[in-house]
Every structure is written in structure tokens, then in C-alpha cells.
Design a protein around this nucleic acid. Structure first.
Length: 183
DNA sequence: ACAAGGATACCT
DNA sequence: GGTATCCTTGTC
């Protein structure tokens, strides 16, 4: 985990509203996830992400349409989508794209915390963050530290745990991993 | 290899 | 009401 005193430019919601969800997922690599609570600041560099794009994507929760749970995916990019999986682990997603386009990027790993369930547990992220804006005042936001991950250092693989989505969608190479070092 | 945990979506 | 399933992890 990067030192908490490291600071960068606060990333605005307007930077997360492209319809190019896969592009946004790659763009997120190298950005800083910043958790603030009680005056304390924890910073991690995003190293592993997955893109979930539109209702057509059978691996996306939005493939079943708009439900109480998935409603947030349809909102304007720049809010968090958090859900509970296996009764124990919270998954952290960045809602992206314009209003009405259900898309999100799952944050699966940071430079020092690998695993989507571990990172939320260690940073204290739970359902309370669901639908909250990505902004410093909410306690969880993104910053640009100026780290550029070159294309050659981004690995692409199928997404994890989505075999149920059928051959086409489960095999889309929409998981992206940044290879170290990260800045 | 598998149990843990609870919400969710989809049945009857 | 019931129940199969789940974008995972730690321990078996």
C-alpha cells in the first residue's frame, strides 16, 4: 500500500462517463484508490480490474435487467456499486458510462492487497458505500498520481468466476492486470 | 476439495 | 412461501 501521505489530483465523475467500459477499465490501472476515515488516509494503486458492459454482457448483473440491486448500474458514471457475494465478501465496482447505460468496472486488486474480497475487508468498505458518489467527502475516491501503465505492461485475461455467462461472454478478455512496478 | 455466509432473483 | 445461485476466501 502506498504511503497515506501520497497525494494526487482528485479524479472527477466526468472522467468515468465514457461508453468505452473496457477502455475505462484499463485507464483505471495505476490510479489511486483512496479511503479516508476519521482523518486517516489509506492509498492503494489499482492493479487488477474487470469490465462489465451493458445488459448484453451475460456476466454482468445487469444482464437480468433493472432490479433493486442493479438499478445503480444504470446511473451516470461516478458512483460506487457494492454488493455482497457468498454471504461474506463485498465487491467494489465503479459505475461508468452515461445515464441509462449499465456498465461498471470491478476493482479486484491493489498493489499490496490482491483479491476483491480482501481489499474491501481491509479498507472497511461495505454496503454503506453502495450508490455513493466517488468523491473525497464520501470517504472513498480516486486520484491520479501520474502513474502511466504502458500498454505492454497490461495483461488481459478472461474474467474470473463467470463461467455461467456462456462461451462468448465468459471468454471475453476483459480482466486487466498491471504488471509491476507501479510508479 | 470444500464449507462458510446471506442477499438476490426466480420460481410455486 | 421455497431454493438455486453467486464477479470469493481460508482451511481442509
Amino acid at each position: 500500500m502506498a504511503n497515506g501521505s501520497v497525494r494526487g489530483r482528485v479524479i472527477k465523475a466526468s472522467e468515468m462517463q465514457s461508453t468505452d467500459t473496457v477502455g475505462l477499465a484499463k485507464w483505471l490501472l495505476g490510479k489511486a484508490l483512496v479511503r479516508t476515515k476519521g482523518g486517516k488516509r489509506e492509498v492503494g494503486i489499482v492493479t487488477e480490474v474487470e469490465a462489465y458492459h451493458t445488459e448484453l454482457d451475460l456476466a454482468s448483473h445487469a444482464s437480468r435487467g433493472k432490479t433493486p440491486r442493479t438499478r445503480v448500474l444504470y446511473s451516470l458514471g461516478g458512483v460506487w456499486y457494492v454488493y455482497l457475494i457468498y454471504g461474506m465478501y463485498h465487491m467494489l465496482n465503479l459505475v461508468t458510462g452515461p445515464e441509462g447505460t449499465p456498465a461498471a468496472v470491478l476493482i479486484r486488486g491493489l498493489d499490496t492487497i490482491t483479491g476483491p474480497g480482501r481489499l474491501t475487508r481491509e479498507l472497511g468498505i461495505d454496503m454503506g458505500f453502495n450508490r455513493r458518489p466517488v468523491a473525497p467527502r464520501t470517504g472513498l475516491h480516486l486520484e491520479d498520481l501520474g502513474i502511466v501503465v504502458p500498454r505492454g505492461r497490461i495483461g488481459a485475461t478472461p474474467r474470473i468466476g463467470v463461467d455461467y455467462a456462456g462461451p462468448v461472454w465468459s471468454r471475453k478478455p476483459w480482466r486487466f492486470v498491471a504488471k509491476p512496478p507501479f510508479g
